[in-house]
Write a protein that binds this DNA or RNA. Structure first.
Lengths: 343, 343
DNA sequence: TTGTAAGCGTTATCAA
DNA sequence: TTGATAACGCTTACAA
């Protein structure tokens, strides 16, 4: 049982209370408390007021200030699938960068579907956020964008992008998909299955485009049977791998567009008695910390989740200060480990 | 490049603007818009005003309302280590429960150290949050609690607890640690190492207490060499496993107080040519989705992260509505898989 | 049931 | 540089 400060609490003083004690007007205190501009020494009076405010435990009320200034120093973040470690890393980087710049983040983590995300956008805008980040735009749903823009606050797509011309900060998913596939091609694989994730996610979609790029360049026709769309979870990986391995002519290698699904595929291989990499080569995507430690460590593509978050906030800060935001595509890197071999 | 609504945006109308169009006073609109109490039909006038507000695209300004009502309908959440999937699941559950109750969450994810967390608490309180959740209290640091209570808003510890009498919602870590250890004892292990996580985290600490409980009950003296404190990351698991396996008399089984560290230990076993479970039994903690799919699936303890989050928000909502919050300890479950065997 | 008016805690404008 | 005053958009006594 907890008492929560029914009486123990000293209420936070207001500007007016400081002013009364200091014998000046509230507006004077407000001015004294705002940062002296660099290169200028604060006057004795300013120092006196600051010391008093400090002593009285003054803390500015952001709500009140925000009402007046129309700025809340808050960034809204719509970020579904937070339970995924990659997304959570992205979120952490966003928060850290925002905090360092004096902003706080208001997060909404609705289901990764259009309607719930639209509702989240509305809710955040009702809170008068100064900028908006959305990590899970859906392809083919321009209304998400329209809704974000309706508010008039700077708005940026992170991680995923939409079809339209929204500014986005993403990793280079298409190149990543190509690198993964080229690696398998170089090892001699010709039937390469892909657990391609959801169609609405540009990340998954572009990794799949990269897969097609690689095959096309190598002069290998794309067999649509080898492309199975699922979700990003372990279960999706399991379902996808089962579909691929049940084909009349199953693939000799599988590229899963995220590590979590790759681990699902790993479970399927285990249950079917397939050895990795001898019977089946497997490539993941993201390089989550765990996959390097597996008995057969996973070949994967390292995607810079944290850097994407940092860069996105930097762009958004730029936009919020009236600048022009610009798109960023961050480089990825193939990490070859033990789960792939030649045939 | 993005234009962000320099002109395209229709500014959100204020209450006063609705009132002017409706030919009534703003306060009338305010009243018309507040929910009719259940069982009462809204009058024709109320319906007319609501329809108009809807048509004009009215959205209440939470900032302004909050200033007046002194309630922001916002819950502050201090949640370090968000990149960890378990913590992220907790966060997601907190967000979902809060949103369903009409609250939004403001999150801070500082480093898992005392000072940064104190700063985060201050920042959230400056935003006038209505309640505060902290997921990473440190043992032996009553000042964290004191700081939280200073605000006078209901405050709850989640996941971890402190030494003092703060109300906390946690999983039953001590029992979990005991179950894991008893399982190994029943298999005949007598030298059981524990990768015990950080000392400041009550979760890790209590799982370790459970380990001690089990040994004591079995009449086996606790060998402090077998208890290595690390962090919760993969690297910690690697370091811990190396320390344990380098002992003159190494353990035949290792209990890692979280799955991530257990996977680190898995990597060490691989590198040392130790087969799991034949040469070394391994137990993790949390049952993250991946560990069930490993070639040798991991025996672990399932800890209800999402339920902890839901329950915490429920208690906090209770506290925020003037009720008495009470502590909750949610049950855990041992999941026996292939990574443990008798000797 | 409706309108009036005050006020939440700040900041911006203006005059002194 | 300072003080007075208004305003941000809303809610809520209180009066009509």
């Amino acid at each position: 049982m907890t008492r929560h400060g029914e009486s123990a609490r000293t209420p936070v003083p207001t500007l007016k209370e400081i002013a009364d004690v200091a014998g000046v007007h509230a507006s004077t205190v407000s001015r004294a408390l705002r940062p002296t501009r660099p290169g200028r020494e604060p006057s004795a009076e300013v120092r006196r007021i600051r010391a008093l405010a400090d002593e009285m435990g003054y803390r500015p009320n952001f709500i009140a200030a925000g009402l007046r200034t129309q700025r809340t120093r808050t960034i809204g973040v719509v970020i579904p699938r937070l339970a995924d470690g990659v997304i959570a890393s992205l979120c952490q980087a966003i928060e850290a960068t925002a905090t360092a710049a004096g902003y706080q983040i208001l997060i909404a983590t609705p289901p990764d579907e259009v309607e719930p995300q639209l509702r989240s956008i509305d809710l955040l805008q009702d809170r008068q956020v100064d900028g908006l980040l959305i990590t899970s735009l859906h392809l083919g749903h321009p209304e998400m964008l329209a809704r974000m823009r309706a508010s008039g606050v700077p708005t940026l797509a992170v991680n995923r992008t939409g079809n339209d011309s929204i500014t986005a900060v993403t990793a280079d998913d298409r190149t990543g998909g190509r690198l993964a596939t080229e690696h398998l091609l170089e090892l001699g694989h010709r039937r390469i299955g892909i657990i391609a994730g959801p169609r609405h996610a540009s990340t998954a979609w572009r990794r799949t485009l990269g897969y097609r790029d690689a095959l096309t360049r190598a002069g290998i026709p794309v067999d649509d049977q080898l492309i199975v769309h699922t979700d990003f979870e372990v279960e999706g990986g399991i379902a996808g791998a089962n579909l691929l391995l049940d084909l009349p002519e199953p693939p000799t290698a599988i590229f899963a567009v995220n590590d979590t699904a790759a681990v699902g595929a790993l479970g399927v291989a285990r249950d079917r008695g397939l050895r990795i990499p001898d019977d089946l080569s497997l490539v993941g995507y993201n390089d989550i910390p765990l996959v390097g430690q597996l008995p057969v460590p996973l070949t994967t593509v390292r995607s810079p989740a944290a850097e994407v978050g940092v860069s996105a906030v930097e762009q958004l800060l730029l936009g919020m200060s009236g600048g022009e935001m610009s798109a960023r595509t961050l480089p990825v890197e193939l990490i070859v480990r033990g789960s792939t071999t030649g045939r």
